[in-house]
């Protein structure tokens, strides 16, 4: 992870809006100044996601997106994109692909890490940590306002890339409402002085929420708002503006 602040990451779903649009969108995002990417691989039952990302996953599956297709699409990733790339998705598709095969394929195409919300700490440590580490694939953990300090310390110890801090306990796509409570939470985490950078996600949709989040963290992630923009027919021409609007405070 780049040692910096105000890092902007974008989440989008692989295979959406078109089956093979993944790499093209990645290039456009890098050109627009995005610092790292989260590419979602779709699952039929995305319980942590709100309606917009659910719909993009459903459409991506209809388009024929699978981990096989994704890794083929990403084969030339590193010829075109140099910023860090993380894959994000649910555990069952990874389990069927084979955790070891998944980690190897990530390494082969140059993916830096994975965010798998429903792969819990305990199972990761017991069963999969070794495989991730052997392939130098970072596993990114989530932290919520309800996560205990003890558990955050443990997550910090097991992480070697960044910690994904949820702005609130919510599914994706609910707007961040910055109030005393969330500010207190962000400050509490900042004061813990963790060794890993903190990146805030969920509910970050525009310049205002991005600015707010990056007061307390090294960066923030925009997902739903970007995926919604991909619905528009000329989305390719709008990516640059979308990113500049979020980063305009720079």
């Amino acid at each position: 992870m780049k040692d910096s602040s105000r890092l902007l990451s974008i989440y989008y779903t692989a295979g959406y809006p078109q089956l093979h649009s993944t790499l093209n969108i990645a290039q456009k995002l890098e050109q627009a100044g995005v610092d790292f990417l989260e590419i979602g691989f779709p699952y039929s039952d995305p319980v942590a996601d709100g309606p917009v990302i659910q719909r993009s996953s459903e459409k991506a599956l209809q388009n024929g997106m699978t981990l096989d297709v994704l890794f083929k699409d990403l084969k030339k990733l590193r010829e075109h994109v140099s910023i860090p790339v993380f894959l994000m998705g649910y555990f069952n598709p990874v389990l069927q692909y084979g955790v070891e095969n998944f980690c190897k394929a990530c390494k082969e195409v140059g993916v830096n890490g994975a965010i798998i919300p429903d792969l819990p700490l305990y199972e990761y440590e017991e069963l999969y940590q070794k495989i991730f580490e052997e392939n130098e694939i970072a596993n990114i953990f989530l932290v919520t306002p309800q996560t205990s300090e003890e558990r955050i310390r443990k997550i910090d110890e097991l992480s070697n890339s960044f910690i994904y801090l949820l702005s609130s306990n919510a599914t994706t796509g609910k707007n961040l409402n910055v109030n005393d409570e969330s500010e207190k939470y962000f400050k509490r985490i900042k004061k813990m002085d963790l060794k890993n950078p903190i990146i805030i996600g969920f509910g970050i949709s525009n310049a205002e929420t991005f600015d707010k989040a990056t007061q307390y963290a090294q960066g923030a992630i925009v997902g739903t708002a970007f995926v919604r923009m991909l619905d528009e027919s000329d989305y390719e021409n709008k990516i640059d503006n979308f990113i500049k609007n979020i980063k305009r405070g720079n």
């Binding site: 919300p117 429903d118 792969l119 819990p120 199972e123 932290v143 919520t144 996560t147 558990r151 306990n169």
Partner: peptide, 11 residues
């Protein structure tokens, strides 16, 4: 078995 849940449900 186990508890394969996102962190949001953990507490």
């Amino acid at each position: 078995g186990g508890a394969y849940i996102p962190e949001m449900l953990y507490p």
